[in-house]
Computed example of a mutant assay.
Amino acid sequence: MNKEIINCLLCERELQQIITWQTLFERRLAPVICERCKLKFELVNYQKEGLYAIFHYNEAMKNFLRQYKFLQDIILAKVFRQELHELLSKRSEIIVPIPMHPLKKKERTFAHIDELLHAAEIPYEHLLEKTTVETQVGKSKLERQQVAPLFRIAHQKQLTAKHYIIVDDIVTTGTTIAHAKRALLDAGAESVTAIVLIKG
């Protein structure tokens, strides 16, 4: 994962390293996709009730998720590392990734949210664990709202801070985020917000 990227991870064109004042004076991670591919992803900057999303779920993002999550192309965790780094690196809250159920992680071979955070050089804590392997895909909004709690505080974990940020890849109805927030608030957190890569 630490090997220098010289070709776009999405289209394999050679990357053009452009030196600007930002790259000289700011903490910027080296780009891993070309400008042409970058323009295919639509910024949405969605913000509502403690939830912030960076990108819209368009065709380019759909293809990215398929390649990254389901075809297990783990190096693609680096594609949005700069955006995540900018949003999270200076936050004082504890970062909590949405966890995978151990059986799902074994099937997929890696925890995709963890890898996104690793690539963005963001420290995090595993405070939650998934209670079921059941997914929310294909359920109606009502069905999602009526499910039993999806998360609990992980075994032998205690909340040592007051403020937390949940990180996930995509939000659609918001059920997953709501369940994760509830688990942390019930365990004593004073505030819980969420940052997701994609607004579905």
Rank of each mutant, 00 (worst) to 15 (best):
A30F: 10
F151Y: 09
P102E: 01
L127G: 00
L76T: 07
L43E: 15
L84C: 07
A161M: 09
L71F: 12
K130C: 05
E115S: 10
A161R: 11
K69Y: 05
S140Q: 02
D114I: 09
Q72T: 11
L150H: 02
I122V: 09
I98M: 06
R66G: 12
T109Q: 14
V137G: 04
K199Y: 15
I195M: 11
R81T: 06
M100Y: 06
L84Q: 09
I113Q: 02
A119V: 02
K104R: 14
N7M: 11
D169S: 02
R66C: 12
A60Y: 07
K162L: 11
L142D: 11
I166N: 03
L197V: 06
E107G: 06
Y68V: 03
K40G: 13
N58R: 01
E59T: 11
R152N: 03
K141A: 14
I98Q: 01
I170W: 00
A183Y: 01
D168P: 08
R81Q: 14
I195D: 08
T132K: 04
P149V: 03
Q158L: 13
R36N: 15
A194I: 00
G174Y: 01
L43Y: 13
C34K: 03
E49S: 13
I75E: 15
N58Q: 00
I5Q: 06
V79A: 02
T135I: 08
L10N: 08
C34E: 03
P99K: 07
E86Q: 13
D114V: 11
I75C: 09
R81P: 06
K40V: 02
E4Q: 14
S191M: 09
M1R: 12
N58L: 01
Q146N: 14
R91T: 12
S140N: 09
D169T: 00
A60D: 02
K130A: 08
K162I: 04
I5F: 03
F41R: 05
L51F: 02
L127M: 04
V96D: 02
R144G: 09
T20G: 06
L15C: 04
A187G: 05
L103K: 15
T131Y: 00
R182M: 11
H112G: 07
Q67T: 13
V79P: 00
A183T: 06
L9H: 04
M61P: 06
K90I: 08
I195E: 08
F64K: 02
V137I: 12
R108F: 03
R27Q: 15
T160C: 10
T172I: 03
H155I: 10
Q67A: 15
G200M: 05
A148F: 08
K48L: 14
G50Y: 03
I165S: 04
D114Q: 12
D169V: 06
H112D: 04
H155W: 11
E4I: 13
Q67H: 13
Q22T: 11
L150C: 01
F25Q: 06
L159F: 04
V167M: 05
I98V: 14
V192S: 01
Q146H: 11
